[in-house]
Nucleic acid binder design. Structure first.
Length: 510
RNA sequence: GGCCCGUUCGUCUAUCGGCUAGGACGCAAGAUUUUCAUUCUUGAAAGACGAGUUCGACUCUCGUACGGGCUACCA
């Protein structure tokens, strides 16, 4: 049976999406596009306690910035709407009841507090408490209580949950697209809560399986942290009688901290000096976190870097456009071990992308930066300035420092360069050079360079001496492109003005 | 603690029984250069450990160690 590929990214709106989540979304997206399938965005907000306002919008904006397109789901709609689980709450109770009737689940009346007590007791006795076949008949459940008692308790308004009746001592055989065959004995598993009466909401496990089934999801691609609950999910498909359309599973390796141990967490970024989120985030309590976008990364570079964290094409190619990723992505080249996130490599990728941009592509990046400085120039000029300096750029946020001298005359002069150049014959030499420049008709960089080089040779100057003194006047610092890129860009009048300014305002060192 | 997953240069990784173990980031040295960069060349740098299978093991099996995940009426 050939089934349409349908994958979903199903985040929980409990905060900003971190880069591990972005990578999961990316792999889902690449897989969907690779196979001509659909990408679904489902919001799993079944935990009313942990809901964070703004998180959903953040997730959607992040995916958009990354170029991960949603075919169906929150924000775009689709045949299985709604895609927000809180808006589907009517659906789940029926399925929970179906499981109870079939003997796959039961009511439990114990409270979280009572369970905490049991857990503590077990812990003190040196054992681990597990809610499973050993205890479920001893606790107040529909397995230990009479039917009348159960109905009475419910009628009385007592809180209850539905728990899955995990079979005893059965080996569940599972297949994972990345990890291969995995087996687990059900006796080591506990009776997970599927539905709770307090808020009339399902837990992740029920909602997830029901929605994946209803939305005809063909492949579940998610983080490795879900692997331990895979047997439960297998069993749920069996309990519902949906095994014939059960999706295939792929559990992705986790993203680990750059240093230290453990998986990458939301707090790592600010501690270690790099962003862990795609976009800047302000929490409802006012705390802020850096984002890749605001830190000056290009979405293409960010995505390229993430794509290679846990996947490789099997060739030596490293720079990939989204389309190239789509064309080469495959789950069987996803690695099994967790990948340590490496901020330096993210910078390298960004630099590669900046180096390869045309002036036309650079201009829209440059314009907002110039506008913020109150500088109005044409796109052509903005792009040209950026283009001259692009090989020195790592981040978008580097652009101003690298190009400012094209647009504003130096207001101060770097001490080191001044000491080295603004002495001896150089002031006199610069005055002569000013005269030479003033007489040049064709101020294109080729012509200016030819004229100046000839003049240097005739007068027996050293190239570095002339160029660096001119650089002091025009740039004010020991940085920047070749001097004739500068002279051409700023034009003759501005050149002369800047030279005059240096001569007039800075006394030569002896 | 229990269960599960994993383990090649510092980091990301290639290798699907024949390896002088390849690439990239980072690092070091050199070259180019009017500054700062870029770029180029070169270098250092790895198969966790122990058994077994095999003519042969980084690749297969087992054990140990280490790392990671899960163990909530969170996802």
């Amino acid at each position: 049976m050939k089934r349409e590929v349908r994958v979903r990214f199903a985040p929980s709106p409990t905060g900003p999406l971190h880069i591990g989540g972005v990578r999961t979304a990316l792999y889902n997206y690449l897989f969907a596009r690779r196979h001509g399938g659909k990408m679904i965005l489902r919001i799993e907000d079944t935990d009313s306690q942990r809901f964070v306002p703004g998180a959903e919008e953040y997730i959607i904006e992040s995916l958009k910035w990354c170029g991960i397109e949603i075919d169906e789901g929150v924000g775009v709609g689709g045949p299985h709407a709604p895609y927000r689980q809180s808006e589907r709450k009517d659906i789940y109770l029926k399925y929970a009841m179906q499981l109870i009737e079939a003997g796959w689940a039961y009511y439990a009346f114990d409270t979280p507090e009572e369970l905490d007590v049991l857990r503590k007791e077990a812990e003190e006795a040196g054992k681990t408490f597990a809610y499973n076949y050993e205890v479920r008949e001893k606790l107040p459940t529909s397995l230990s209580l009479t039917k009348e008692e159960v109905e009475a308790r419910i009628a009385r308004g007592e809180q209850w949950v539905v728990r899955f009746k995990m079979p005893e001592n059965e080996v569940v055989k599972m297949d994972d697209l990345i990890r291969g065959h995995v087996e687990m004995n059900t006796s080591t598993l506990d009776d997970k809560v599927l539905y709770k009466s307090v808020d009339a909401l399902p837990t992740y496990h029920l909602a997830n399986i029901v929605d994946d089934h209803l939305m005809e999801v063909s492949h579940v691609i998610r983080g490795e942290e879900w692997l331990p609950s895979l047997p439960l999910h297998y069993l749920l498909y069996r309990a519902f009688g949906w095994t014939d359309t059960q999706p295939e599973f792929a559990h992705l390796p986790l993203l680990l901290k750059p240093i230290g141990s453990g998986k990458l967490s939301k707090r790592d970024g600010d501690k270690m000096g790099f962003p862990v989120f795609p976009l800047f985030w302000t929490s409802p309590t006012g705390e802020t976190s850096r984002g890749y976008r605001e830190d000056g990364y290009l979405p293409e570079a960010f995505i390229n870097m993430l794509s290679l964290l846990g996947w490789n094409p099997g060739t030596e190619q490293e720079v990939f456009s989204m389309q190239e990723l789509i064309d080469t992505f495959s789950l069987d080249r996803v690695s099994k071990a967790g990948a340590r996130f490496q901020p330096d490599k993210a910078k390298w990728f960004n630099a590669q992308y900046m180096h390869n941009m045309s002036d036309e592509q650079l201009a829209p990046l440059m314009q907002p930066i110039l506008k913020a400085k109150g500088i109005e120039v044409s796109d052509a000029m903005a792009g040209k300035a950026a283009g001259i300096m692009k090989e020195r750029m790592t981040l978008v946020t580097d652009m101003w420092d690298l190009t400012s001298f094209f647009f504003v005359a130096p207001t101060e002069y770097e001490e080191k360069l001044t000491k080295k150049q603004w002495k001896g014959d150089n002031p006199a030499m610069l005055a002569k050079l000013r005269g030479l420049l003033e007489g040049i008709e064709d101020f294109s960089k080729e012509n200016t360079e030819a004229v100046v080089r000839a003049w240097i040779e005739q007068n027996g100057y050293a190239l570095g001496q002339v160029m660096n003194t001119l650089r002091l006047a025009l740039v004010g610092a020991g940085k920047g492109p070749g001097m004739f890129d500068v002279t051409e860009f700023i034009g003759k009048d501005e050149c002369l003005k800047r030279i005059d300014s240096l001569i007039a305002n800075v006394t030569p060192v002896e």
